[in-house]
């Protein structure tokens, strides 16, 4: 028996919004420690790694490890049937071929359940080594989203260049070029607005805008984001999901031909 309950359906909707741009379907691996998902987009350029801890749920039970392959468009249809403040419970029997979503309104006067068929997905898991990154940038997630959106008007790629002075995002194309520089801030009063840089050595890498913009669909999950970079390794963009877990995106850098 698997059962996981969240007081707010809105949280699960945000998690789904954060992955469905990149993935059409995904396997949710459930164990007694929580729910994990690791999947690459169809072009194998980016990877989503989601972790939801058991203790972040209001109720969590997983008697046997279970992998639930879900079509994310179908899951989206079902979650549209929930109000954001409805409680959601995800349930499945051991070895089940379907999963049930139960939505309960605040006052319990409306209870609905939706059953969805599960899929057998061939998943390719990648072994991701622990890396000591040359630089880690912590910044407001809304600012990162804005920068990706603004720069993608100019070109298909963004160059991210991090030094001890700050971080520079730049893009260029047919209409011209754009540069955005962020300096490290020391505003302790408004910690969530700070930009901080842990730098071992300066790094400059180039990334496709399209994927960065998809990653920023996680912005509603967290007001902070971190960007971890080293020369010639994939970028890691991480959003902490408060009290529940995290979502990490990996993106292969572009290289000079």
């Amino acid at each position: 028996m698997f059962e996981a309950r969240l007081v707010s359906s809105g949280t699960l909707k945000k998690v789904l919004d954060a992955i469905k741009d990149l993935l059409n379907e995904a396997s949710f691996d459930c164990s007694d420690t929580g729910i994990q998902l690791q999947a690459m987009d169809s072009s194998h350029v980016s990877l989503v790694s989601l972790s939801l801890r058991a203790d972040g749920f209001d109720k969590y039970r997983c008697d046997r490890n279970l992998t639930m392959g879900m079509n994310l468009a179908s899951m989206t249809k079902i979650l549209k049937c929930a109000n954001n403040d409805d409680t959601v419970t995800v349930k499945a029997q051991d070895d089940a071929d379907c999963v049930t979503f139960v939505f309960e309104s605040k006052k319990q006067e409306k209870i609905s359940d939706y059953e969805m068929k599960l899929m057998n997905l061939d998943q390719e898991h990648l072994g991701i080594p622990e890396t000591d990154f040359s630089c880690v940038i912590h910044m407001p997630s809304g600012e990162f989203s804005r920068i990706c959106r603004d720069l993608s008007q100019f070109g298909e790629s963004v160059i991210i260049s991090c030094t001890k002075e700050g971080v520079r995002f730049s893009s260029s194309g047919d209409i011209g070029s754009a540069n955005i520089k962020l300096a490290q801030t020391n505003n302790i009063d408004k910690e969530e607005e700070t930009v901080s840089i842990d730098l071992q050595e300066p790094v400059t890498l180039t990334f496709a805008c399209q994927y960065l913009n998809s990653f920023t669909k996680a912005t509603p999950l967290s007001n902070r984001v971190s960007l971890s970079m080293s020369a010639n390794v994939p970028l890691v963009v991480e959003y902490e999901i408060p009290d529940l877990g995290h979502i990490r995106y990996y993106l292969a850098p572009k290289i000079e031909e």
């Binding site: 350029v45 990648l126 496709a208 031909e257």
Partner: peptide
């Protein structure tokens, strides 16, 4: 001109 490699250029399959 830049080239877009896949993640398999960096990570091994499990």
């Amino acid at each position: 001109p830049t080239n877009q490699p896949t993640l398999m250029n960096f990570f091994k399959k499990k």
